[in-house]
């Protein structure tokens, strides 16, 4: 029988907490940027101007066809150099976190844009007609009438995607960035207690994601009740 020894965890909690902050930071920036850029992509894709629609479709299909690990790897290899030369940074400045944020944001926006496009299309066509008939421009109709309804319907899907993203942030460990998973790994490796630390990390990920998806389900129920009204 394997002898579990959890004693290295309490002392490592502050370090693990710092890791969790990095995981959350990446998640939050990628969600915010992903939704903003994803909304733009969705609107471009639905635009009657063909080249714009093609660009958006190409972007989305490209990122959805490449494994996230590869996108991140490319970002860790290329973006740090770019950032350094572009902003004239000291070669020792740590840009791994920024690179990770940019990589996730660009990748996730492809997924968000598909969710948002479906959301926009779920708003009945008559709503745009009514807004136009009142004299609103296309962008006013989008901003004031279509997007608010689309987002209300999409919130559960957007949050579910954010939960997946939070789990995926653990992939940054390969750049030796100490996110929550990376931190747990480092501590386990140092103390020779990898099994315990990885079990602990797994339980924490599970608790956070499970609680978050329960919240999403509660919201979804409320939303359905509201729509049925």
């Amino acid at each position: 029988m394997y002898d579990f020894d959890w004693s290295s965890i309490p002392g490592a909690l502050p370090f693990l907490w710092d890791g969790m902050k990095i995981s959350l930071e990446i998640t939050v920036t990628a969600v915010i940027f992903g939704i903003v850029w994803g909304t733009l992509l969705a609107m471009l894709r639905l635009s009657p101007v063909k080249p714009l629609a093609w660009f958006a479709a190409g972007y989305v299909n490209l990122f959805r066809s490449i494994p996230l690990v590869m996108v991140l790897l490319w970002f860790f290899l290329i973006v740090p150099q770019l950032l350094r030369s572009f902003f004239n940074l000291d070669p020792n400045t740590d840009v791994r976190l920024t690179s990770a944020m940019i990589g996730f944001a660009l990748f996730e926006s492809a997924y968000y844009s598909e969710i948002i496009r479906a959301g926009i299309q779920s708003v009945p066509k008559g709503q745009v007609a009514a807004a136009s008939a009142l004299g609103m421009s296309y962008s006013q109709a989008m901003r004031l009438v279509v997007l608010p309804q689309a987002f209300r319907n999409m919130v559960p899907l957007l949050l579910t995607q954010a939960i997946v993203l939070f789990q995926d942030t653990s992939l940054v460990y390969m750049s030796a960035l100490a996110d929550f998973f990376g931190a747990a790994y480092k501590v386990g490796d140092r103390d020779g207690r990898l099994v315990e630390l990885l079990l602990f990390a797994g339980v924490v990920y599970f608790l956070i994601c499970f609680a978050a998806s329960q919240l999403v389900r509660r919201y979804q129920k409320k939303l359905n009740a509201h729509v049925a009204h």
Binding site: G126, A130, S132, A133, G135, P148, R152
Partner: peptide, 19 residues
């Protein structure tokens, strides 16, 4: 848009903004 703002229109399915 300007012309439409001066012409009222009422639809079969009302099309009020539900939000």
């Amino acid at each position: 848009s300007k012309l439409r703002s001066r012409v009222g229109m009422v639809f079969q399915h009302f099309e009020l903004f539900p939000h």
